[in-house]
Design a protein around this nucleic acid. Sequence first.
DNA 1: TTGTACGCGTTATCAA
DNA 2: TTGATAACGCGTACAA
Lengths: 347, 347
Amino acid sequence: MRTPGKTVKSRQVTLEDIARELGISAMTVSRAINDRPNVDKKTKERILQVAREHGYIRNEIARSLMLKKSQTIGVVVPEITHSFFPEVIRGIEEVTYSSGYHLILAHSAENGDRERSAIRTLVAKRVDGLLISTAQAPETKSAYLQATRMGTPIVFFDRIVDNIGASCVSIDDEECTAKITQHLIDHGYKRIAHLSGPANVSIGRARMKGFKKALRRNSIEFRRQLVVESGFHEDGGYKAMKKLLQLPANQRPDAVVSVNDPAAFGAMAAINEDHLKIPDDIAIVGMSNDIRSTLVSPPLTTINQSPFMIGKIAAEILISEIEGRSMPGRAVIVQAELVIRSSCGCK
Amino acid sequence: MRTPGKTVKSRQVTLEDIARELGISAMTVSRAINDRPNVDKKTKERILQVAREHGYIRNEIARSLMLKKSQTIGVVVPEITHSFFPEVIRGIEEVTYSSGYHLILAHSAENGDRERSAIRTLVAKRVDGLLISTAQAPETKSAYLQATRMGTPIVFFDRIVDNIGASCVSIDDEECTAKITQHLIDHGYKRIAHLSGPANVSIGRARMKGFKKALRRNSIEFRRQLVVESGFHEDGGYKAMKKLLQLPANQRPDAVVSVNDPAAFGAMAAINEDHLKIPDDIAIVGMSNDIRSTLVSPPLTTINQSPFMIGKIAAEILISEIEGRSMPGRAVIVQAELVIRSSCGCK
DNA sequence: TTGTACGCGTTATCAA
DNA sequence: TTGATAACGCGTACAA
């Protein structure tokens, strides 16, 4: 019986090996394998034959070292489970696949230290570029700046950092939130609450701004007690809504703008627990067109952000910067649309 | 105005650079930075100081080439969007993060060629190991074998290949399907249909076997026309169910075992379209405890596979094989549990 | 404690 | 068309 022990890698086949076997130089083998023009047809055939026989697979690590290019981009996301980021990643993958790049995925788990450490090791691995959606943590630009100083371009998406000269891809969070808030106002809601994201990520701040902007445009007084920070998850939405429901009945909101759909789902659970009807007693809207938003009861009015497109565009921009076809500092706004269902009282 | 052009990488700082600046050898710098014991305290401090000033970040590519170890594992999944794989990936990430590995994610998109190409380039990138869930495509073991021949261990998860000596992590698909079918039988359903996965992936075959096994155990006749291949997605489930609903009323199923939850959702839509009631006219059960399974109406009875655990265990096994602490060929069964809701007629 | 020589596998460069 | 040499940046092994 075999016993555990260091895995014995059957020494990998190198260009040298093939060259030696054919009595030629490694350089010629390299040329043949990379399909360069200047190699005799016959020798090329012999080389490819032997390479195939030995199952030669080029060592991309050595190649990367030589070329100072890894054909790899690092992706840092704050979470992977909910439907938004998987869709973004699929968009990214679509682009990287067809342009010959690979994708190292790192998960910051909303933890700033983990995000910094991820960026650092991705830079150490000499990724050609970084795609980042920031963690929910106190901002520290130093890690980003270190990467860009080393010549590693960054494109931020969704949760962006727009003041360090890197490109950003997102929806117009402020305007979208204003739009969906306006939708509620247009339907006669007067006391509108906001379940807000944390102020240390761009979308938290921008959506809050959009909410306030809509109130201002309609000369509706902004009431501090109608804003509760919920974070981005169900439990936070639930707790924040509970808090709003504890207000005296005449101060309670008649509608709620949630920073995203999962928080809205949590809030809906809280509302149901109090035996209030949605939308009759309290209307509610989300912001991320979660896969579940059609299934909850009532179906959630929300904003479709096209996460697939966000990923695709972010990756395209990054690769074009890597390949020197465009300059950093672009700010791309992806179109997003209001999806009207019945949680807002329509239909 | 700056014009686009090849990004100018401010030449990266190397051990040499730091050594030259301090008038010492690169080796001493390497030792200091890697925290080796045999370096003078004072020189070490000076080295670290200079390294910090220059923002030195070790070149992991050079290190990998030297060490013949990339601290990277390749993950190949057939899809990324639905809730199952993101959860698995989170489990994998948890383990790789805490054991100092990185994760290159590749997406086969259910395409065999793309899977093969992914495996090949991951091996070329000299990943230390591979985690694979196979695509829905004619099996070609050669890519797997080539990887293992090169000394790159593979651990299959969920959709496994159990006859090439690689380790596998999955639930007991056959027994689980038998169990949930038995649950329907116990509740008096007589004409049970199966929306089956394709026969070219392990879970398609195993779940079909489990379905048949349950019928046999209860001496229920297996009827060919009550099995329709649906694939793993909503649209396939919808179409397959439509087909079943075209059977003459007395031959129609009174219950359906779907190969997974998304297909079940599609089937439920088809049933609703025909104005039949679930579970009264037709009961239905799924197999993957999708995030939506509590929200559909009625909530879906299904199997909870603990995808997070599957990912975690697969990654643990792979890393222990990479590090020579265990041998390939293990078959780990992850516990899965029946989740009874009301689509089966209970509650 | 520190340094030198070399090798990891590849490709660029220049010479033959 | 082909080959020799050097270089990419690091770490091992051994010598000083």
